[in-house]
């Protein structure tokens, strides 16, 4: 499956597109799309230039975790640097 991600324009934070068309920093809330349906969603997202710096498609598994070739990259991107457990989203969850 696929999801849409990007970086928020104002501060660069990693965000995902939700079902209600809002951006969220929580990957678990990201809307999941079938591979065939994603292209128009991306095109629409890319038009929202005042909200995000860029938008692109990532592979996700059925439960929303990163998958495919960029799995390591997207895991780190979603969580924070692996060498600084105190930074990024990973620091918020279990502090």
């Amino acid at each position: 499956m696929k999801a849409i991600t990007g970086n928020r324009l104002s501060d660069g934070a990693v965000v995902y597109l939700r079902d209600d068309d809002q951006w969220t920093t929580q990957r678990s809330e990201a809307a999941r799309f079938d591979d065939d349906d994603i292209a128009p969603v991306l095109s629409a997202a890319q038009l929202r230039v005042r909200e995000i710096a860029d938008a692109y498609i990532i592979d996700v598994s059925a439960d929303g975790a990163p998958a495919g070739r960029t799995i390591i990259r997207e895991t780190i991107r979603g969580a924070g640097p692996t060498v600084r457990g105190d930074l990024g989203l990973q620091a918020e969850c279990c502090a």
Binding site: N7, D11, G12, A13, V14, R77, G80, L87
Partner: peptide
């Protein structure tokens, strides 16, 4: 002006 967009942020 030295401003990149990286993985987590600018």
């Amino acid at each position: 002006n030295g401003l990149y967009l990286q993985l987590h942020a600018y």
